[in-house]
């Protein structure tokens, strides 16, 4: 009888440790609580070029994460990339002339959307479009331009 008791206690401890480990994986290793925007509103922005922006990339204002990119489409009528962003409800008073640009974290880091609040009195609501946008900087293009201007400058000399 004592033996079944120790066996049962050991099994109980094992199952508890296993479930605890799953819990640690969920809470500490991944981040379940760190802003998964379930309750939010959607903003849309059109870009000529989104570069390497990915779905789930962060949306930030002044370096603070306020939302996530939820979808990226291409509009065949206007030949522009359409980025759908879901913004946390807590940040619901962006002026209508807020601008959006695609930025890069560090030199080679992942790309994200940076919002820059404007000064208008009206606020953006669910489904509204951000009109002022700046596309991603594509490194190849910049290098190409640099080399071109370098070559042109060299020829003039």
């Amino acid at each position: 009888m004592v033996q079944t008791r120790t066996v049962e206690i050991a099994v109980g401890a094992f199952v508890a440790a296993g479930l605890g480990a799953l819990f640690v994986l969920a809470m500490k290793v991944s981040s379940i609580g760190a802003l998964d925007v379930a309750d939010g509103y959607e903003l849309v922005a059109r870009f000529d070029n989104v570069g390497g922006l990915k779905v789930r990339a962060p949306v930030t204002v002044g370096g603070v994460k306020v939302g996530r990119v939820v979808a990226i489409d291409y509009d065949m009528d206007r030949y522009e990339a359409v980025v759908h962003m879901r913004i946390d409800r807590r940040y619901d008073r962006f002026p209508a002339d807020t601008s959006a640009s695609i930025l890069t974290a560090g030199l080679l880091g992942e790309q994200y959307v940076g919002l820059e609040p404007g000064g208008e009195e009206r606020y953006l609501g669910d489904g509204d479009e951000i009109r002022l946008t700046q596309s991603a900087l594509v490194l190849e293009k910049i290098i190409g331009q640099f080399l071109y201007s370098k070559a042109a400058g060299g020829g003039a000399k």
Binding site: G18, L19, A21, L22, L25
Partner: peptide
């Protein structure tokens, strides 16, 4: 459970 414990 074992795999989760291993990972943690």
């Amino acid at each position: 459970l074992l795999a989760a414990i291993f990972s943690v």
